[in-house]
Design a protein around this nucleic acid. Structure first.
Lengths: 343, 343
DNA sequence: GTTAGCACTCATTGAAGCTGAGTGCTAATT
DNA sequence: AATTAGCACTCAGCTTCAATGAGTGCTAAC
């Protein structure tokens, strides 16, 4: 167990290193206001902290730098919650000046503003459309061979799929099909559509349509493609100005990862609701070695809808970022809740 | 006017520098097979070429490097068209394995493969939807206040806009409106819709709908937002491996530009049909100082639809890139032409 | 338990010197 | 008159070396 003095020293080291990006030495520590004992004492304490794994040296005679364990302890126990200043608050609230149904724009603006406020990279996972409820299906034939199926949800989200028309299907078949689909599927969540089609619609189609199974498989097929939540980024290049990324090869791996959306999902998705902090190797991703990722979820009611995240160096301003994310996710949640309660 | 020998020397210098990224000296030139005169002669010729502005030195005693003027001359007069090898051709043709109506996927794959084949950054401007012809309009009310308007084109492209319903409009008004719109606007190019609405539809609406003008403005408004062609990128981080971008600040400006799509449009858009080459400052963009941009258009019939482009260092393999772009744009054009001729 | 003092380490900086790839110029050669 | 050999010169880049200073650990005194 760490003594109070050790905690104080650890905290000051982390704070100082976050600010300066320079290893922290005993002499410079001893000069701080918070600290009333000599550099020699600090050296002794630092030796202990190092033995315990909370801090490390970059070389034998260098100052100390927090280890991942040190950051973890700092985040878990030493973080002094920091109130946002008024300017930050009003900047965040300016996000919601858009008309609320232009939700994509709100999300995009959130990403941009988060990255501008923090100078880190922001990642926002758009609201999952998969449990939006179906409002209407339309099928519009383009020519003899192809048609577009359009799915509109109660939230105004529109999905569309082009597909080959089975050659035996004629206009009246299509119309009947659409009617049946609308009758049976309105109000069903997108993610349940496929299920429902086989369970409830199949039989009806059989009664009314020749070659019903071809038609049905065609439609079911077009629904199989996952409704992907969109990712939005802000400040992709911000990491270039962080001193820990002066090395081209590190930048390259990191930017490469950021540009592969499919690698981002696992990083930010399987988190529980609320604020989550992953430090360095906790992200299980070699490109994230020197990075921390802080995520927050936004939701409507109890259902969490999407995620906002900040990707920065492990030497990140945790306190500030957490405050910003908390604030923004709260606002997003309330905007969304308002939006959805209308329906 | 340059002598044949000067042309030869210029060509070899550019070729060699493109390959090696190292300033080219007279001695190493004299050793090449193509060159049968001594290094002293070459030095004299190089002095002349330098005076004429085709090559330059990086410092007083360094070898020579092509200037922008030198690249320009090389591209305009010295380029030996290079045939693609079979492997490249088959890789490019693999792009078209997708079902042709998944055109976005084809475009995306084109971007990826171009960047993989060249190790540069590729930019593909998706087909302009703006002159697709309208196939069908649907308006689907979400609740009392909002509705989604859906525009389907003959090519299967779907646009949608959420808008506030004027409070005085009821369901039958909406239905009538949609009928009128479909009757009058089917076959009209998206870009002409706004025009046509005011010229032809306004009157009809007035006859059938109360508060017709509110309705009309609402609909016209939702069409005002430009139908933006989408940009697709490949190999955004490829420039990091180019030796001229070992400098972080150069990389930063370049990547920042790439991430601002609105800055990319002017770079690749106002070009005439066919292959266009912009070298360094010819791009009129400070972030592009050390870059060249080669663009090619693809089209359907006479109408050019979109652009594919390669962004590389000025020290780019012009010949190869041009061949690749020519080949791919021809293929895209023929695929698109097939696709559109069906309708 | 705390601190002053001291010997030690090591990254960083800058000067000095060397090397090698390049140049321009001149005089000899073809 | 054009080409080339020869030579003096330049300069980036590398290596070496010493000095600097911010840091350490340890010990003995307070």
């Amino acid at each position: 167990m760490l003594t109070d003095r050790q905690l104080l020293i650890l905290q000051v080291i982390v704070d100082d290193f976050i600010r300066s990006a320079q290893p922290v030495g005993s002499r410079s520590l001893s000069k701080k206001d918070e600290i009333s004992f000599s550099s020699a004492t600090i050296r002794n304490e630092m030796a202990d902290l190092e033995e315990l794994g909370y801090i490390e040296k970059t070389h034998t005679s260098s100052g100390r730098v927090p280890s991942e364990k040190g950051y973890r302890y700092y985040v878990d126990h030493l973080l002094s919650p920091q109130a946002l200043n008024k300017q930050d608050i009003s900047i965040i609230q300016s996000i919601f000046a858009e008309k609320i149904f232009e939700f994509e724009k709100i999300i995009q603006k959130s990403a941009r503003i988060l990255s501008e406020l923090t100078n880190y990279t922001s990642i926002v996972l758009g609201p999952a459309a998969s449990f939006n409820k179906l409002k209407r299906i339309q099928i519009i034939p383009l020519n003899k061979e192809t048609a577009v199926a359009i799915f509109v949800t109660d939230s105004g989200h529109v999905e569309n799929r082009t597909f080959y028309l089975p050659p035996t299907v004629d206009a009246s078949d299509l119309e009947k099909t659409v009617n049946i689909l609308n009758e049976r599927l309105t109000g069903v969540a997108l993610e349940d559509l496929n299920d429902k089609i086989y369970k409830e619609v199949a039989m009806l189609l059989r009664q009314h349509i020749r070659n019903y199974d071809l038609m049905m498989h065609t439609i079911a097929d077009s629904l199989k493609m996952p409704v992907n939540e969109k990712l939005f980024f802000g400040g992709k290049t911000n990491m270039l100005s962080q001193p820990e990324f002066h090395d081209i090869s590190k930048i390259r791996t990191l930017l490469q990862m950021i540009d592969h959306e499919e690698w981002i999902y696992p990083l930010i998705k399987n988190d529980s609701a609320g604020i989550n902090i992953k430090i360095g190797r906790e992200n299980n991703n070699s490109a994230m070695e020197n990075c921390s990722l802080i995520t927050a979820t936004y939701s409507v009611g109890a259902e969490s809808l999407g995620t906002i995240a900040i990707l920065g160096p492990t030497r990140m301003e945790y306190s500030r970022v957490i405050s910003l994310l908390q604030f923004l996710s709260k606002d997003l949640t309330s905007v969304l809740t308002n939006l959805y309660q209308k329906y």
